[in-house]
Design a binder for these strands. Structure first.
Lengths: 117, 117
DNA sequence: CAGTTATATTCCTATACTGGAATATATGTC
DNA sequence: GACATATATTCCAGTATAGGAATATAACTG
């Protein structure tokens, strides 16, 4: 019985460290050509092409053909399920959001205090 | 060249859907015995034991021996790297934290308005 | 069109993994 | 100690995949 395919879902796609690196590159908001990724990650072209293929399959990246170039861009929204999943365990660690709320409340109180002065 | 092992890191450990399910069970804050997971997930005991073994290896769960029972509990902090990683792409989707701030400010203003009434 | 460049895909190979049957090990009860 | 229960581990078998060499396909330039 085989392991879940890398293209099963986003979780499986990003499990591979190299693919997380690629996602990190593309998160600069720009489009990257395959060869740019090749140079940057010091990987062979076939390897990069294959990784991008996986990411494309799960929708994390999209590709635009520009002549002989294939420009890849990140579709970050597709990573949200991972964030959402991990977020369900947030209550077990630092209550970061609570802290943000408190901080915002303090600021608002201070602001109003100054306006009433 | 093999795929990254499931015990390489947390990302690889949770790529497998069954293991995410197990984590979901343990997130109720209680300790679960292997057999309880078996019954709940309708999986065979060896399979559950192996999945728990992977999770234990990466530190996501810990085990306490209670006589012939092995009680497993979640170490949710170990999932934080996933949240943190996904979070770096948050700026690409709904500005959720901004919304929390606004909401908190609104509440504070309302509270003060009532106290001054 | 020939030659060049970009890149997707195939080929190759060894490894890892999934579930459950089977087995080994550990603990409990009478 | 015999028997029962809990569970870790081994065995089995077929599949998927990583990287890079090789190849196929697509686009560009002169």
């Amino acid at each position: 019985m085989p392991r879940a395919a890398t293209t099963t879902d986003v979780f499986n796609a990003v499990a591979e460290p190299r693919r997380r690196e690629i996602i990190g590159l593309l998160s600069d908001g720009r489009e990257w050509a395959v060869n740019d990724v090749v140079v940057r990650l010091r990987l062979g072209q076939p390897a990069v092409s294959k990784h991008l293929g996986v990411l494309r399959k799960v929708g994390v990246v999209t590709v635009v053909r520009r002549g002989q170039h294939r420009m890849y861009r990140l579709e970050a929204a597709k990573l949200k399920p991972i964030h959402d999943w991990a977020k369900t365990f947030e209550r077990f660690w630092n209550h970061k959001i609570d802290r943000i709320k408190e901080s915002a409340e303090q600021k608002a109180i201070k602001k109003i205090a100054q306006e009433n002065r």
